[in-house]
Computed example of a mutant assay.
Amino acid sequence: MSHLDTYAELQFAGIDLLEEADRYSRGELTERGISSREASRLLKLSRTFFSKARHPRKQRDAVEAARRRRHSVDTLEVIRNTARGVHKGAEVGMWDLMVEFCDYEGSYDEIKRRTKQRVLEINLRVPDRVEKARSRRTLHISATITAWGTRRFSGEAPAEDLDGFLPLIDERTRALRKADNKLTFEQAHYDAVKSLLTDGEDGEKLAPVDKTYTPLVVVSAEDAFEIIEGRGDDVLLAATDGTQMTGRDLINERLSDYTYFGLVDPVNGPINLYQGERFANFKQRALARAETILCAWDGCLTPADRCEIHHIDAVSQGGGTDLRWLTPLCGHHNGRNDDDPHAPPKNGRVERINGKIHYRPPDGEPVRHREPVARMGMMDVIDRSPRSPSPDPEP
């Protein structure tokens, strides 16, 4: 049997894979070579089908049907996500649909179309469906920047809302493509939305958003000399909003009137902040963000500027409020952090080890943030300096 045949055969054992994955932690799955993203997906699905449920009999029926129909993991994910879309108060509940959908026959695409149509028909009969649809409105803009220098954004809106302004967007899209036949439909669609946001519906120009930085410059003395001497193209810097730039970009385009300079200690971390002019408020927050650039939780890509300042050792556990106890964590990971280091680990916690911030998982050794931009913060800058003492070995 070829590798491709083995892969195809596994597609028919989706529920068995989820049942087996339910016995492991996320860390144990990644140790087997499964990506962290795929491990999270498998565990989320396995909890649906095998963790304690409010309707255990229906859960068992759904599992039996999924095994009988030999659905793939992808198909089971579609079934769960679509069934969860049924409105509260509908004539059929989520777990009734889970049992029904798991017993469907057909390919992934066929089941995806069929389940979507079924839930839509059910929701259309809910009296307050418009209000319920509106409660699901979202607009997600990614916190990270892609290698292309773009940000991804996606959203969901009530059909009635979109029907109100889509004709205007489509009209501008057609006009833009007529003026420039090299534009793809997707490019023209984006430009149409952007023009409506920046010009207004009646062509009135809105005030542009000021995108200059008031930065805390995380740069070594050697790199600063290169920038001053006009060789900044070769120096890559990181800002605490998660973006990266060259030294030339920083000088020519992005500096505001006020520049921060950070002082760093190789063992204790950031210790003070100085500013070229006027006040230096919130120096602890600024330095904490400059140390990690991103959320300090390994794998999180939220820029430090969008994070909360976390006490590494909680005040209730004897921690202080000076800089060595502070680090940025996004709201999600700040809530998940195991604050009590003496309690049984559940989600993991951030710690300062040998002067640097580490994430200690609940079932493994502490690690530093592996995202490249996170390794451009203050403590890494001094590591790269030839005058810096040899860094202590990682634990």
Rank of each mutant, 00 (worst) to 15 (best):
D298E: 14
P344R: 11
L301Q: 14
V350F: 05
D298K: 08
D322R: 04
W297Q: 10
Q317F: 10
L301P: 05
R336L: 15
H311Q: 11
A304W: 01
P344I: 12
R349N: 06
A304V: 06
P341C: 08
R324F: 14
H310N: 14
R306K: 15
R306F: 13
V315R: 12
H342Y: 03
C300S: 06
L323M: 13
R349M: 03
V315S: 12
D322H: 06
D340F: 10
A304C: 01
Q317I: 03
D340L: 05
P345I: 09
E308T: 07
K346W: 09
R349H: 10
D313A: 09
H311S: 10
P328Y: 00
R324A: 12
G335W: 04
E308H: 10
A296P: 11
G299R: 03
L326F: 00
K346L: 09
A304M: 05
G335M: 04
P344A: 11
N337V: 01
D313V: 15
R306S: 14
L294A: 03
T321L: 13
G319L: 09
G319V: 09
T321S: 15
A314R: 01
V350N: 10
C295L: 02
P303Q: 02
T321C: 07
N334A: 08
A343Q: 10
D305S: 15
D322S: 14
K346H: 07
T302Y: 04
N337R: 00
S316Y: 01
G348H: 04
R324V: 11
D313S: 10
C295G: 05
S316D: 12
C307S: 04
A296Y: 00
C300I: 03
D339L: 12
R349Q: 00
T327R: 05
G348W: 04
C295N: 02
